[in-house]
């Protein structure tokens, strides 16, 4: 690695951390982080006392595991897509282009930022969950290892999709609608909040194509006892298959995202940005 590349990597790390620090001191962002925690903790509390049918495991615990998976996935897709769309509109990306190795640092910075945001969201959720929900915790050393790698691979598998969406969407205010709707659809079939074993088999098959199912499964394997395996497909946590599916998505995603990002970054110019700004003002 040459000195300049090393500097770009260092600048990217610094950039990601700085942006994350800004996010933690921004009122809107904090409301976002804490709002999700309060909402989901509240939902889970509401389900207290109910057990998953055929087991003695509280539904709340299964939900919490699913929510961790949901937070990882939604950070990877919406934070990345939204961030890219905004950065294109306000000139952040063009600024990066105007600086030597700036785009490399920008992308590394974005990755660091997304990892930090995902970690913060998960930690903020887990702290009250560990304290207030009986039996919800990480009990096996191997579960800690799973908790370390599944979210990371989950982020890697979905972030390229976020990057592609963020490169294609020209209006940042439309991002939420365009991204969240399909995301919610996939979430509904991926067994984030309930077992997919009750679904028709073709739907179960479809759900297992997408990474979200495997992220949620991995999180259930961490937070739920093995007695829950009775209601999982194949009565196994299938972590090897999870790694494989997420790995394929990550590899293919990165190749496609790199091409889309390159094309998008190349096309970015002052007059495009100006035109976007005018359109935005007209809509406002």
């Amino acid at each position: 690695m040459t000195a300049t590349t090393l500097l770009a990597v260092g600048s990217g790390l610094r950039r990601g951390w700085t942006e994350f620090r800004h996010s933690l001191t921004s009122r809107e962002d904090l409301i976002g982080y804490l709002g999700i925690v309060v909402l989901f903790t509240g939902m889970s509390t509401f389900m207290r006392g109910e057990s998953v049918r055929g087991t003695d495991i509280p539904i709340a615990n299964m939900w919490l595991a699913g929510i961790v998976g949901f937070l990882v996935a939604s950070t990877a897709i919406t934070t990345v897509a939204q961030g890219l769309a905004v950065d294109r509109e306000d000139g952040t990306l063009l600024r990066a282009k105007a600086v030597p190795h700036g785009v490399t640092a920008y992308l590394i910075g974005k990755a660091v930022y997304v990892v930090c945001v995902a970690m913060a969201s998960v930690v903020l959720l887990l702290i009250p969950a560990f304290v207030f929900f009986d039996g919800f915790g990480v009990y096996q050393p191997t579960d800690w290892i799973t908790l370390a790698w599944v979210p990371v691979l989950g982020l890697l598998s979905l972030a390229p999709i976020g990057a592609i969406l963020g490169s294609l969407i020209s209006n940042p205010r439309a991002t939420m609608g365009l991204v969240m709707l399909p995301f919610m659809g996939i979430m509904a079939i991926s067994g984030v909040f309930y077992q997919v074993t009750g679904f028709p088999e073709w739907l179960q098959g479809l759900a297992q194509v997408f990474p979200l199912y495997w992220i949620a499964l991995g999180m259930r394997s961490v937070f739920l006892p093995d007695s829950m395996l009775a209601i999982e497909i194949g009565q196994s946590w299938r972590l090897g298959e999870a790694a494989l599916v997420m790995g394929v998505w990550a590899a293919v995603g990165f190749v496609v995202a790199a091409a889309v990002l390159r094309r998008m970054a190349r096309r970015e110019s002052g007059s495009r940005m100006e035109a976007g700004r005018r359109r935005a003002m007209q809509r406002a």
Partner: peptide, 26 residues
Amino acid sequence: LQSWRDHGRWRVEELLSYLARFYGPY
């Protein structure tokens, strides 16, 4: 450029120092 509105959350010196670093090797 004409219409930059980027890095709104950064502080003036923070942003300028961050961007300055890229030129060191040159």
